[in-house]
């Protein structure tokens, strides 16, 4: 994979026949996966993917290290997303405090933490849950959504995300944690009824 990537970038920069089509074929869906997560609309996400590829070709010279291709593209995509959303109304940025993300208390004043993590895969990996996760991510304020998409969905490192977003690694960690907490909270509300009567597994 890594070898293929290096080859692809050098073919692309050398103007080799077929490199353009291969690159677009491979990276358009990847950029779309990110921009769709950020925008939530297919049309907007396709626009962002197009704008990203366009910018990428225009700045092809500035890509020095082929292994940085992913983060380089995502940084361009991130900027394209921000531009897109400056025009439309974006949900106002809401700072989430840890306090508001702490688990609630049950009737006896004990933390109410239903453990749904051991539900069988059929319950956690189905299309309905996919939709719940999509909605939970979509409801996050943009800055949290961006970090969660890059870090967990795209599986980039803390350092890579910091470079793409232009914030410190500490800030990436803080925002990722809050984003995960908020998604966990949503999933818990959805899954809680399913484990209500079920015996707790050891």
């Amino acid at each position: 994979m890594e070898q293929g990537l290096v080859q692809l970038v050098s073919d692309l920069q050398a103007g080799e026949r077929g490199a353009f089509d291969r690159f677009v074929e491979l990276y358009r869906p990847k950029i779309f996966a990110f921009s769709y997560g950020m925008c939530g609309h297919r049309e907007d996400a396709e626009d962002v993917a197009q704008e990203t590829l366009l910018q990428a070709f225009r700045r092809l010279d500035t890509l020095r290290a082929p292994e940085a291709l992913n983060t380089w593209l995502l940084r361009i995509a991130r900027n394209a997303c921000l531009l897109k959303h400056r025009k439309s109304k974006f949900a106002p940025e809401h700072e989430m405090s840890l306090q508001e993300l702490m688990p609630g208390k049950d009737g006896e004043g004990l933390p109410d933490v239903p453990d749904w993590s051991r539900l069988p895969d059929e319950e956690l990996l189905n299309a309905e849950m996919g939709e719940q996760i999509r909605q939970a991510i979509a409801k996050l304020a943009p800055k949290y959504r961006m970090v969660l998409l890059l870090r967990d969905v795209q599986q980039l490192s803390t350092a890579e995300v910091a470079a793409i977003v232009g914030i410190t690694e500490e800030a990436v960690k803080t925002q990722l944690h809050r984003a995960r907490l908020a998604v966990r909270e949503k999933l818990t509300r959805y899954l809680k009824p399913r484990i209500a009567g079920a015996p707790v597994s050891p």
């Binding site: 769709y36 297919r42 933490v113 453990d115 299309a127 991510i137 995960r180 966990r184």
Partner: peptide, 27 residues
């Protein structure tokens, strides 16, 4: 126990996010 349950569900949340792929593909 509550913190263990919390950790378990947070771990699972991150796992589910890692496996998550949007159902939509670009046209």
């Amino acid at each position: 126990a509550p913190c263990v349950a919390f950790l378990n569900t947070l771990r699972k949340t991150a796992e589910l996010c890692r496996q998550y792929r949007p159902a939509e593909a670009p046209r």
